[in-house]
Amino acid sequence: MSVTFAIPAEAAVLRVGQEVHVLPEAPPMSVGKPHIRTPFYIRGKTGVVAVAVGSFRNPETLALGGDGLPTQPLYRVRFMQRDIWPDYSGRPDDSIDIEIYQHWLVSAA
């Protein structure tokens, strides 16, 4: 699905369909008393880019009163529930989509 937003995504380096790892720890550019949008339960997990959303001001610096620049590309990444919770009791193809900023992701390839 293509979604059109006003904010360009020219800095995006990850592609839809690409397998990605979520960093287990905050990346070096995360600052201060962290305001982090990557939930604890998804750190270190592996998913697939579902949508490249566009670029947005970085909430980690916006939270400190900064300008949030440079903007960060944002992705909707899809994870399989069974890869997140070892004891997941639902269907094997149940999934979770999470918005994650590029600086928290590395290509799994």
Binding site: R37, P39, E99
Partner: peptide, 15 residues
């Protein structure tokens, strides 16, 4: 129904 996948969306950022 049994054949329906549940997809949760965690609204973590700008959408």
């Amino acid at each position: 129904p049994d054949d329906v996948e549940v997809r949760v969306h965690d609204s973590t950022a700008d959408l």
